[in-house]
Amino acid sequence: MTALEVRNLHKRYGQHVAVDDVSFTVEKGEIFGIIGPNGAGKTTTVESIAGLRTPDSGSLSVLGLDPTKDRAEVRERLGVQLQESSFPDAIKVAEALELHSSFYRNPADWRELMELLGLTEKRDTQYKALSGGQKQRLSIALALVGNPEVAILDELTTGLDPQARRDTWSLIERVRDTGVTILLVTHFMDEAERLSDRIAVINGGRVAAVDTPAGLIARSSGARQVRFRVSQPLDRSVLTDLPDVTDVEITEGRWLVTGRGQLLSSVAGALARARVVAEDLRVDQRNLDDAFVAFTGRAPESPGNSTRRVG
């Protein structure tokens, strides 16, 4: 079953093309990640899905509905946590949750949600007195208070400390386990890799790739590297003769082997045949950061950089 379908989405603001041509499909029950550099069109894409922007061309479908024409129905069934959204300073946590739950036909139990997000002890705290993490958790709770079938979470853990980020991740996994489809926009690669079933990489207003995290990493990887020390003398040619190996460097007893394909098993096999034990063996683990660089030509922002930006 398809939860979201985006076809050839195009949106410009005056001369500036925010989204050039974006298409992807999100299946029900999936956590679908969107990553890409700042200004790639991520936020405009999700705002169009949320019905906040009207696309210039292309088509959108949310649970089979059109976000522009079937506004009311989409709003009942789609929960949104926006980047840069806020609430009145003096509103208390419990008041905000109770108020928002009154907007929906079949709301979730807001007290339960407040408990789930660890906000119960802050129930009588005014919004302006909450910490960044608590504000973020309230915003997530409000996105889920309508019992949505699909939730859009834009920059979910921006501004949270590492423990709060991990807690939020497990919360999102629990929410997904209840059958909610999640569209996750993030510029944290670890977050996208950990949570997403599939990821779209958006670059320059276009989809550069859509795949599972492992698939993206595999597709992007060029050279692989293996490092080790050896217990006995070893002739370089033992490794340079291997078809998978492209280069061998030896610096002060440390071997650095560069190659492709099943590099590690080729090297390990050759060493075993030569009766040499490799010590301190390390394989350069490729991750989503590398895939991001490969597909966008830019480095992802580090998780330490927690400033909010419009993407």
């Binding site: 949320a50 019905g51 906040l52 009311a72 709003r75 009942e76 789609l78 949104v80 926006l82 840069e84 959204s85 806020s86 609430f87 009145p88 928002h100 907007f103 929906y104 036909r105 309508g146």
Partner: peptide
């Protein structure tokens, strides 16, 4: 004006209210 400036109106327009 504060509600608009701080995205409170925008946030509300993503809900059925």
């Amino acid at each position: 004006a504060t509600y608009r400036e701080r995205g409170i109106l925008r946030r509300l327009s993503t809900t059925p209210a």
